[in-house]
Write a protein that binds this DNA or RNA. Structure first.
Lengths: 215, 215, 215, 215
DNA sequence: AATGAATGAGGATTCATTCAT
DNA sequence: AATGAATGAATCCTCATTCAT
């Protein structure tokens, strides 16, 4: 069987070539951003000639969009783990959940997922013709936002939707910021600690907003 | 009169050329980031030939560093306004101060200052040879960080220095995130509202940390 | 019935693929000339993958030669229609014939036959290695030239062969020119009118040459 | 003085470089047409690096347009020679003039002026986005057309303007055709003889049209 | 009869930078 | 203080063609 795989392998395996290209592109794009990612670099990194890259992807823009999509998908999978909890009080459970999620996010962001670094770089650009890759990131980010909204609604079932949206905006934005801080400061930055702070801050915020509404 | 005009305006003026170049570079770099900023584009935008840019700046890297420095300086000036407050209770005064500062930051970031957009883009990059411009941004960011630490220390004079540092890290990072959210969402994002949320969250956090320490 | 459809239509049909390729190639070559005609463009236009084109044609050169050949064949068929005429006087008949032919050519050239446009483009090129397609056009053009000589010989049976050749050269060349004028000017150019002028000019010319010879 | 020129020459002479580029481009474009003219070829032929060509011309299209413009200018200068004639009878003089002009055109076209070969190639193309070079040729051709109209009006002062226009269209188109015939056939084609035929044919045509009008 | 995948060469154009003036 | 001209290296991307299946 091994022999067979070896024999069949070389020459024309589209699926695998595509993957190799994406792997290389992720690396390069993570290192140097959109403009800094040159097809030649990707080609050198993946071993396929530049022209082959164009067989698999229409152009650089589409390649990078695919990079973001794949990287986000992987991150989301890693993020979506079962969340066993046996606390009786639902409020307590929700709080624990929030803290658990924060810890999980902190951990996953410590690996500096490429879609996020790349995506934020793209998000900060304002070029005349919006690259597909940027659109892809914004799309992907909306998915994350929705998940977060759901989690907050669960944390505070009695909060009105507008407030939920506001808090989830805040929560996501701050998470971006913490990620960047970690990118800048490296491991000097205690990402788990900061995310714990963040989780508590959010819990406080939700409480405050609920009290406001009650009053 | 003709003589006067000649004297006043046309005398090839280094200072003004430099300014024109920086103005153009700010625009372009804000639109397209570090790699996307080409000397030719800057030249076209400011009307001076590319070679003239090299008379004023050693190379592209130095030009962009200058852009960041100048933009940050302007922002800091705008930020550092007198902060009259006549409240008797220092705790109340500190709280007001925090909220006022948050409002001021929110307002200033709404104009999407170029140093911050550019700087964050640079911060997210990880290229082999660190550009001067990135270093400049990190420097400049440290200044902002110090100011913030001072403000938080004032808000909570009894907090231990490590906690102050941690909170100020969190505060600055989240502010970056909010800025990015505004960059992405445009004016749909209620920056003042989010910064108010942020200020309250920080106040809560400081209180929480203080109680912890007391206990 | 299903079986019938399958049998009638889908049986991968070489003849039809060839035709589709040629159809696409005619279009593209008509638009962009020899160098501008890329296999990829033809492939996109005909729906077959580029590699399939190489199954039917040795290389690009041969493909374009085939285009010219087929287009000229079709044109010649359309040109060679019965030419009923019952005039008694052979001279009168010949004149009518000449005018009729001119009208027919004018009409056929108004549809801008691709072989001619493409062929003239190729004829104007002077590249080191003569493409097969050019040779094909020159061959095809010789056929047209011979037909024209025959017609002129009929118009003026007493004209010496050298003069016939000269006039037919002139006639063909001018026809090319009129075609080009129509290509340039579109339907603003009254091709039938110009060809009528041309026919009369030829008749006059033939007469003049005959008189010369007589004198 | 000679020494001074020599000393000043080398390094950075924009005017001369531009001329060298145009010279090379004329050669190449004459050989291979629009698409066949590559910047690299031009660069190799003129000795300047490809990037220098872009200092002098915005892009390939503009370069070729410039080639056409210059080549036509030169041709027109060569064409516009004094035309001394002392015949008494104006009709005789006009006829002589026509024949003289035909001879001159024949001779000039024997050198296969580049603007005409290139221009005709471009004229035959029909690409979606019209190249500047094609527009330039059509412009330049209009100038030639106007000159020709004037000459014909002089040859037949009593001919109505519409007829003059028609004849001049015919005359120019046929001239294009004769030029192409010469391009195809090389020196086997007796261009002066054909142009003489053409001139006579035009004179006959003008006469015929005048008689028609009289009748 | 056809095609998915690959590929080296070359396409136009732009880059940051330099240098003589 | 400024600039016209030049340049080698790099950019993205397309080309004609091949080959295993």
């Amino acid at each position: 069987m091994v022999g067979e795989r070896g024999a069949r392998k070389r020459r024309a395996n589209g699926e695998e070539s595509r993957r190799r290209i994406l792997d290389a592109a992720v690396e390069v794009a993570g290192e140097r951003g959109y403009e800094g990612t040159t097809i030649n670099l990707v080609s050198a990194r993946c071993g396929l000639p530049a022209s082959s890259i164009y067989w698999h992807f229409k152009d650089k823009d589409e390649l990078i969009a695919a990079v973001i999509e794949r990287s986000f998908g992987a991150w989301l999978d890693a993020m979506t783990l079962p969340d066993a909890d046996d606390a009786a009080d639902p409020a307590v459970r929700a709080r624990r959940r929030a803290l658990g999620m924060a810890a999980r996010v902190a951990k996953s962001l410590s690996d500096s997922p490429d879609f996020l670094r790349l995506g934020l770089m793209l998000a900060l650009e304002r070029r005349p013709e919006e690259p597909t890759a940027r659109t892809m990131f914004l799309q992907v980010r909306k998915v994350a936002q929705d998940r977060l909204s759901a989690a907050i609604a669960e944390l505070a079932p009695d909060l009105d939707p507008a407030a939920v949206r506001r808090v989830s905006h805040y929560a996501l934005a701050a998470a971006d910021g913490l990620f960047i801080a970690h990118e800048i400061g490296g491991d000097d930055v205690d990402l788990p600690g900061l995310f714990e702070l963040h989780a508590h801050a959010l819990i406080d915020t939700v409480d405050r907003l609920r009290d406001h509404a009650d009053a």
